[in-house]
Design a protein around this nucleic acid. Structure first.
Lengths: 144, 144
DNA sequence: CAAATCTCAGCGGCACTGAAATTT
DNA sequence: CAAATTTCAGTGACGCTGAGATTT
């Protein structure tokens, strides 16, 4: 649907506008990641591991915005691709310790490049200053 | 998840930020509409009918951002509640002509009040000027 | 025993596709 | 006959819940 054809009641509703862009955003970013045979959730997982270091799956899900039960499958796949390593925590054998591998770090860099291009396509109508403003406002609205 | 705990790679990604707020937004607005036993999609349908007048279901879905096949069920419910009327178009008997009823207009006014309150809760961290800026940037990004 | 962790099976809301039936 | 419209059945991605198994 095109925004300009929508009813004014919707077009001035922040919650509605916020619902429109993510649909495109997910597609753009999803397509960029699909070229690497990865998923948006897996990018979040790799980014968390890179920034915060090895972690249990629970903590990992928490910081990546994923449900504990969905982390399992994505981690399975990342391990099969040797982008992460998963092993039992010897200190607490209930936990898995998940860590990014060197290959995972390399992949992350490539992903980042493609994802940035996707952002450009997504926000192509906004200049650099407007993009910064948008990011700032979204972060503030979210409480960051 | 809290934004401040997320990896920086995600926190500076517009597409990711855009994905976080709608989750809250849908819940807020959905709860407001649920008090009237209605759904977000149905608000969009009523708003379209009010602003653009009677329409076929296809055109209605187009302007409301809904799939043709999902329109059916929501319209069924709205008709049962007598907020809209649906009848065969005598000019083209393939089509249904859907129109909002006086009761539908009254309901729409009440819905709007509750939805505005939900927006306030959603964007409570932003002042009036920032809200206007956010709306403007989102609309521009969407091509409006 | 209670609590934490990982894992799996399944559910519900959602957007969509495909096809049948009717009409133009 | 081809195209448009409504309707229905079904699919798939997604986020989540609940329960079992293991460990602390």
């Amino acid at each position: 649907m095109d925004v300009e054809n929508a009813p004014e009641r919707l077009r001035r509703l922040p919650s509605w506008l916020l619902g429109q862009l993510p649909a495109e955003a997910r597609q753009e970013v999803g397509a960029a990641l699909a070229r690497h045979e990865l998923h948006r959730s897996q990018y979040a997982l790799l980014a968390s591991l890179e920034e915060f270091g090895p972690s249990s799956q629970a903590g990992l899900g928490e910081r990546s915005g994923l449900d504990r039960s969905d982390v399992v499958g994505w981690i399975d796949d990342l391990a099969a691709k040797e982008l992460i390593e998963r092993e039992r925590d010897p200190q607490d054998r209930r936990r898995n310790v998940v860590a990014i591998t060197p290959g995972g770090r390399m992949t992350l860099v490539q992903l980042e490049r493609d994802i940035d291009k996707a952002q450009d396509r997504l926000l192509g109508r906004l200049g650099p200053a407007d993009r910064k403003t948008l990011i700032r406002l979204l972060r503030r609205a979210l409480g960051a």
